[in-house]
Amino acid sequence: LSPTDPMTRGQLRRMAELAREEGHEVRWEEARGGATAPFRTVGGLRRLLRRAERVVMGDPFSRYVQLLLTITRARDLVVVDDGTATMEFVAQLARGERLVRWHRKGGRLSPRDLLFAPVSAAARRRLTPEGSGSGRGRRVEVFSAMPIDEIPDGVVVGDNDFAWTRARFGPPRLTSGADLVGTSLVETGVVDGDRYLDAVRALAEAHGATRYFAHRRESADKLHRLAVETGLEVVRPDLPLELIARRGPIGRTVLSFPSTVVHTLPRALAGTPVRVAVCDIDPTWLTATASPRAQGFLSGVTGTARDVHRLAVVSPA
């Protein structure tokens, strides 16, 4: 289900190439290409979804994924996602809550949310395991590198240790400096843009970072300003960062704010001398419209990370 923004599309194209090289068949759906695209996509996938015994999906918060879940009769559902949203998804499923992304939690429902609510509720029910009597039960698995504390009854948790990534790429060539990993917290309305830029500058100066690996959802305007004002070389990866880092070259120190990579990079780079360091988000950086849960959630992302070095919150000049 192809996205619309160019950077994410590019990464997905490259991942599709890797999947084909590994012997998998890939079907590319322009699922968001105009007003009629959803109808074409759903119509084209309906028969496959109804016949499938197992369905493997990515982002369970995606309205598209939730819509397709209402079509399938598969008794084996697998969520594969190494994003921070996975932690929230499993916790919400365990508590029987409405599925909503963490950075939107606490806000008012939009008219679109209200219209889509029955579909979302149906998807949540589909993602709830059923009893296995007479072989008619529904199995639900979450496969992720993220820490999962609240495990819903009946849900199977699989651990992504990045064994394929380590076997397929690397070991990487290391540079002498540090690299900084970007985040889309500004784009999602959680962190103030000016405060973020100041923090990036201070972090880069303190640790001698020379490159900034952009998140695929960071805006071009923000990245241009960041490059001009900090002097960092902005790199827009054509593959997920875990694969880029494993291929190299990569800095001996990788700096990050709270995000997925503080959980995934140590696994992808296991066996190398690369140090992953994380800098917490200062509460004063949050926007006035940030979710009330933002600070606690981001602290949890950092606090549950293993094999990372904790940095003091930077104090921009």
Rank of each mutant, 00 (worst) to 15 (best):
residue 6 P to A: 08
residue 16 A to C: 14
residue 21 E to T: 10
residue 21 E to G: 10
residue 23 G to A: 07
residue 27 R to P: 05
residue 38 P to V: 11
residue 50 R to A: 10
residue 60 P to E: 13
residue 61 F to L: 09
residue 61 F to A: 07
residue 66 Q to Y: 08
residue 67 L to M: 12
residue 69 L to M: 14
residue 88 E to D: 15
residue 96 G to H: 08
residue 100 V to P: 03
residue 103 H to R: 12
residue 106 G to Q: 09
residue 110 S to A: 08
residue 111 P to G: 03
residue 113 D to Y: 08
residue 115 L to R: 13
residue 119 V to F: 04
residue 122 A to D: 04
residue 142 V to F: 01
residue 147 P to L: 11
residue 153 D to T: 15
residue 160 N to P: 03
residue 167 A to M: 10
residue 172 P to N: 08
residue 179 D to F: 04
residue 179 D to L: 02
residue 182 G to A: 12
residue 183 T to Y: 04
residue 185 L to W: 09
residue 187 E to F: 05
residue 188 T to M: 10
residue 199 A to G: 05
residue 203 L to Q: 02
residue 208 G to C: 00
residue 208 G to V: 08
residue 209 A to N: 00
residue 212 Y to Q: 06
residue 213 F to I: 07
residue 239 L to E: 11
residue 242 E to N: 07
residue 246 R to M: 08
residue 256 S to N: 06
residue 261 V to S: 01
residue 263 H to T: 00
residue 265 L to S: 02
residue 266 P to V: 03
residue 268 A to R: 04
residue 271 G to E: 09
residue 272 T to W: 01
residue 286 L to Q: 06
residue 288 A to H: 11
residue 291 S to G: 05
residue 294 A to V: 07
residue 296 G to K: 06
residue 305 A to D: 03
residue 305 A to V: 00
residue 308 V to A: 04
